[in-house]
Structures are given as structure tokens and as C-alpha cells.
């Protein structure tokens, strides 16, 4: 999971956007505009996040919209926090060597 989350800058931007704005419900193009990009340039990253379950898609009339899965977002944050704690632990072990 972390490999996907840390795969690209766009994925990072999307994660930050949706995490800070959990009530964002918008089309691919509009979401892209909100991080200063185009729909085409974020499509692959969005697909990755949808496959991970961090983002959900819904059909509103003729449009498909993206939104955050709040429960999954919390799981992801926990996973990242755990990963960072592990990294800190490794660094501490490394420091004892010197």
C-alpha cells in the first residue's frame, strides 16, 4: 500500500488535498484543477487510489465524481504513522552504532 501512496508527487498531492478537505466531491477534471493539474495527468494516480480504496467513485447524474473514503483514510494515516515510527526506530538503532 505504501508503495502506491509514495509512488508519485501527484498521488501525494491528491492524498493531501482529500485529507485536508474530506468533504470534497468533484469530477476528475475539477479535482485536477484544484491541485493545478489537468484531468489526463492525474488519471493514473486516481486509479491507484481508487484501487487502494482511499478514494471512491460515484455517479451523480451524467458525471462520475471522486470522494474520500473517510474510514479508509484513517487506516492509511495509521499505516503511514506506523511506517514513520519504524523508520525512526531504524535510525535510532543506526545511531547507536556510531
Amino acid at each position: 500500500m505504501l508503495e502506491t501512496l509514495l509512488a508519485s508527487e501527484v498521488t501525494g498531492d491528491l492524498l493531501v488535498l482529500f485529507h485536508r478537505n474530506p468533504g470534497l466531491i468533484d469530477t476528475l477534471d475539477s479535482v485536477a484543477r484544484r491541485i493545478g493539474r489537468t484531468g489526463n495527468s492525474i488519471e493514473e494516480d486516481v486509479r491507484g487510489l481508487v484501487n487502494l480504496g482511499v478514494l471512491k467513485t460515484r455517479r451523480i447524474g451524467r458525471s462520475e465524481v471522486l470522494l474520500l473514503d473517510r474510514a479508509r483514510d484513517r487506516e492509511v494515516l495509521d499505516a503511514i504513522a506506523k511506517h514513520l515510527r519504524n523508520l525512526e526506530g531504524v535510525e535510532k538503532i543506526d545511531n547507536t552504532k556510531f
Binding site: 468533504g23 466531491i25 451523480i60 447524474g61 458525471s63 465524481v65
Partner: peptide, 27 residues
């Protein structure tokens, strides 16, 4: 929001006007 007393929905106006199927605010 955590206490389910409030929600912010950030969206585009055209989605608010969609009349077919589920509405944007239904969830």
C-alpha cells in the same frame, strides 16, 4: 464533523444541479 453533527461538501455547481439518479448530497 467527527460527531456527525456537521458536514462540509465542496463541489462544483453543475454537480449540484444534476437531476438524474442520486443527488450529490444524499450521502
Amino acid at each position: 464533523e467527527e460527531n456527525n453533527k456537521f458536514r462540509i461538501v465542496c463541489t462544483s455547481p453543475n454537480l449540484m444541479l444534476e437531476s438524474e439518479g442520486e443527488s450529490l448530497l444524499d450521502e
